[in-house]
Structures are given as structure tokens and as C-alpha cells.
Design a protein around this nucleic acid. Structure first.
Lengths: 169, 169
DNA sequence: CTTGAAATTTAGAGGTT
DNA sequence: AACCTCTAAATTTCAAG
């Protein structure tokens, strides 16, 4: 006990582990990125530590926020959303004050997979997966373009989307 | 009109389970998208079936390709890649024949998280996570712009990236 | 196809060197 | 701080409705 220090965790993304991240930790992260359901035993063997030690490492990585979660990768087409698109959104200059609100609005729209808040001539890029072109047209016309803060949109259909997982971290 | 048309569909994203996907399956997918490490027992209880049945469902979803994998979500900043960017790439018209090769080239570049092959005025959008602006500049200048097939690039820094996971599928 | 229980494997905690 | 052992819980297989 007597752990008075260390807390004071505001919200931030400040790395609790000062800057460290052993080669062992990096290897564990690699493996879990490839397969989040890999057994602890197998991971321990692969990185060369005891299962117990490996388990402690993984837990620490989760607690420190390095690992943010474990998620299943589901094929959008299999769930009836076979059409993907990238929608670039430009906002009116005066509307850029409450971006968080607009972002939340986007996050609640159907079919939105991810949101990029970017610099440049566009303000937002949103990756959507929908059932068909009609759903895409409806989304853009009825839920985005009509929004008073939106100055304009530019939609590109996605032929292929590849999520890259590199071998080395 | 008979359906002779379109291209020969060798490749196969054809759903094995023709169109089926029970409400139970959809619920399982929801839960696993939120937490891929959720115990099978807990999932079974949540969807209202026996653990064994639930396990069989999950296995079937994996075998049929609906679930493509389970991956850990690792904070890029924690692994020394605190700068994210979206790089739009336009190719020369004559270079659009072997897009697959160029895509593989992109996938092997350091820091590339995902690749979007899109319609419109740009051909590719790549989402990258790098250590700093110098690394970003090096990537664009030395690995992308110099590529003979590349006609031009347009880089936008990403202030915020949100991966949206909706409650309902 | 679903259920229920058994056997193997794994996770997580405590104590030791 | 990493390793070993132990208990509890999970996954997976097997048989039956």
C-alpha cells in the first residue's frame, strides 16, 4: 500500500509508463493486434516469458491505455452493408466553433464506421458502409447536406478497403 | 433479362450463408464488436441461448467469413506514432492497370494503417500514423511522390480519429 | 438444431527465489 | 521483477432431446 502518488489521472492520453515499452511489450502488442483471442499461454511462449508474467504485462498494457480494447472485425457486406463510401464534409467557417457536437451528430448517423477530423480544404472525412446507393444518397441528401453547418460534401465510393496490420510496432 | 451479365465472380465475397443471419447472430456480432474477449458464457446469457449453442454460432460466423478476425485496438500514440494523417493519392491514367501492385506497395510502407481505393478525383486514400511531421514528410516525399505511377498527393493532418461502433447492426 | 453436462485447457492470484 | 504452483473459471467436446 502507501500508493499515494501516481494517481492524479486527469483524462489525458499521457503515457503512465513514463516512456518505456519493452521489446517484450511490443511483441505482445503485435500478436494481440493480429489475433486478440490468442491464448495467454501461447503469447507467453511466443515472447519467451512465463504465462503469469505475460498475463501481468497484458493487464498493465490495458490499464495504462496502450490497449484500448478488443474488437471483432465483422464483414460489412455480410450484415447487409455492401456499399462503402468516403464522404468529405466542408463546414461553414462560422460553424467551426462546436465541432464536437457536429462530430457526435455524425457518429449517430446510420452506417458511419469512422470519422476523421482533418486539416485542409475539408473538415471531416467519414467512412460509411450502407446497403446500397439509395441509402447512400439518402444519407448525404437528407442527413448531411441539409445540415445548416454543412457548406458542402464530396462523396467517393470505396471499391476496396484494406486495414493494414504491420508485423512490427 | 437473364443474368448473364457482369463479370465472372470468381473471387468470392459471396456469402456462404445465403442471406441468413438470425437476430441471435446479429446480437452476437454486436457484442463481439464491442468486446472481442467477452466470455462465451456471458454472450450466451446475453443473447438467451446455451453456451454451447453460442459457441457453435460464433464458430460458424468465423467459418463463413462474417467475422474476419479479432484484433486488439492499440493506441498509436503509445507506440510512438502520435501523428496521424490522410494522404490522398492520384495516379497517372496509364498507371491504373495494375492497381493491386500499387496497393501492395502502399501496404508495406511504414505507418500505413488503412487503405481506401476510391472513385472520384483521387485514386487512393491512405490513413497513416507516424512519429512526427518529419516522418510524414519523408514518407510522402521519399516513398510516395517519387513513385513513377503517382501523379500527385494531398496530405491532411488528422486532428482526431474516431472509430464508431454502433449498437445495432 | 438445440440443450446439458464432462473433460481439457486457460486465466488469474499468491508465494518464492 | 520474473518464475512456479495452485484454484477457479473458461472453452471445447460429447452425447441426448
Amino acid at each position: 500500500m502507501t500508493n499515494d502518488s501516481s494517481a492524479a489521472d486527469f483524462s489525458s492520453v499521457v503515457p503512465k509508463e513514463r516512456r518505456g515499452l519493452d521489446p517484450v511489450d511490443r511483441r505482445i502488442l503485435e500478436l494481440l493486434q493480429e489475433d486478440a483471442r490468442m491464448p495467454n499461454n501461447a503469447i507467453a511462449a511466443a515472447v519467451g516469458v512465463a504465462p503469469s508474467t505475460c498475463h501481468g504485462r497484458i493487464r498493465a498494457l490495458q490499464d495504462s491505455g496502450v490497449i484500448r480494447g478488443f474488437h471483432a472485425d465483422v464483414d460489412p457486406a455480410a450484415t447487409g452493408r455492401g456499399l462503402q463510401a468516403m464522404i468529405a464534409i466542408r463546414l461553414h467557417a462560422h460553424a467551426r466553433s462546436n465541432l464536437a457536437t457536429f462530430k457526435d451528430y455524425l457518429a449517430r448517423l446510420p452506417g458511419v464506421e469512422s470519422i476523421f477530423f482533418v486539416t485542409g480544404d475539408r473538415d471531416f472525412l467519414i467512412h460509411v458502409a450502407l446497403s446500397d446507393s439509395e441509402a447512400l444518397r439518402d444519407l448525404v441528401a437528407h442527413n448531411i447536406s441539409v445540415h445548416p453547418e454543412v457548406a458542402g460534401t464530396n462523396t467517393s465510393v470505396i471499391f476496396e478497403y484494406v486495414s493494414v496490420r504491420r508485423p512490427a510496432g
